[in-house]
Amino acid sequence: MIPTTGLLLGAAAVFVVLAIAVLYRAVRGPTTQDRVLAINVLGTNTVVILALLAAALDVPSFLDIALVYALLNFLVAVAISKFTVDRGGVM
């Protein structure tokens, strides 16, 4: 039998490490769009990590948070993109 729980947690750890790596792009830029892009990737990673944790720890309620986060991630990316194009046009 393959230790699924360990694998899922290991994958989660790898995803966090990749998130730290992507953080370099968020800090470095050079443009705002680069940063937003990096945050978007980070957000997708977060959603996946949450899903992995939900499966590994067997807490399905984490999936609800993941759902909220998936939507928020999108909202933030679009809002900032729109903001940088026409200042004040966020809403």
Binding site: T31, Q33, V36, L37, N40, N73, F74, A77, V78, S81, K82, T84, V85
Partner: peptide, 10 residues
């Protein structure tokens, strides 16, 4: 969609 928004903003 987000990627499109970002690329378009750029």
């Amino acid at each position: 969609t987000a990627a499109h928004a970002i690329a378009r903003a750029a």
